[in-house]
Amino acid sequence: MGQILYAAATIVVGVFLCVAYFWGSNAVLDRLCPMKGPEAAANVRRANAIRPWLFLGPSILVLSLYLVYPVFNSIWLSLHDSSGQDFVGLGNYVWLFGDAKFLESVRNNLLWLVFVPAMATFFGLVAAALTDRIKWGNAAKSLIFMPMAISFVGAAVIWKFVYDYRGADQEQIGLLNAIVTGLGGDPVAWITVPFWNNFFLMVILVWIQTGFAMVILSAALRGIPEETVEAAILDGANPFQIFWRIKIPQIWGTIAVVWTTITILVLKIFDIVFAMTNGQWGSQVLANMMYDWSFRAGDFGRGSAIAVILMLAVTPIMVWNIRNARKEGQ
């Protein structure tokens, strides 16, 4: 109970402080630069120059401290030893590229990068195209979209139950093994099969992200000008040709957005691997390895080096996003 009060008090105090800051600083500015009197024009100009920074101040402070500073601090830490005291140059990176687990993580991350965005976008596209043609499409969309709300940890439990394995002499309570044995096969401990277990983990993320892809692509498909489709129908195109030749080319931009958004998420994937295998049986990924080295082994140097690699991996997408945003802004 005390904890709830603490949280409630924090909200009240926090909101009050925020409002007090914004209101107070504006009031002070208005007092210092009154819009009346002999210097009114100069004052208005001065106030207009200062006010944006009052509005932006807290955000800039928080962003610099919580996102910008850590980027540089991580780079600095990655050049130092486990305690962050002694400079080791590129030692941590040299170690990384000789480490089997790291190379395994890179390979797995690449697998994730190819498989998850591709499958999620594909299923999202199919779901968007199909649900738009039927009456109960919105209900269907809602259900396919639902896993978006489920945490990675919750999804891990859900799918671990699907993949559950018991000896061949016992009755299978995991859905997948029940289907396999029902078809006459032998049960398999899916998440411990090296290499292929990666795909069983990826399925979870595809399951979660398909809804996202579907929602965005569905909006894009609806935005396609009717005339182009009607013209194709008049020319005798069949529904498949209309979809692949007329509609898809018109939504390439949106497909790219969906793809890159999922790509960024995939690069950072942590919870699913952490909860399902914790990187055992050849399923390690960069983010989980980074967590292991930083917070289990307590080696901030190596942990930071892995984080910097992650940062390098998202940088091309970051640059691309910024360029697109600037183009749109002009």
Partner: peptide, 16 residues
């Protein structure tokens, strides 16, 4: 702001 949207939060954990 657009750039910071994609900064992996892994980078922030140790420094913060």
């Amino acid at each position: 702001v657009v750039g910071l949207l994609v900064v992996p939060l892994q980078l922030s954990l140790i420094p913060l």
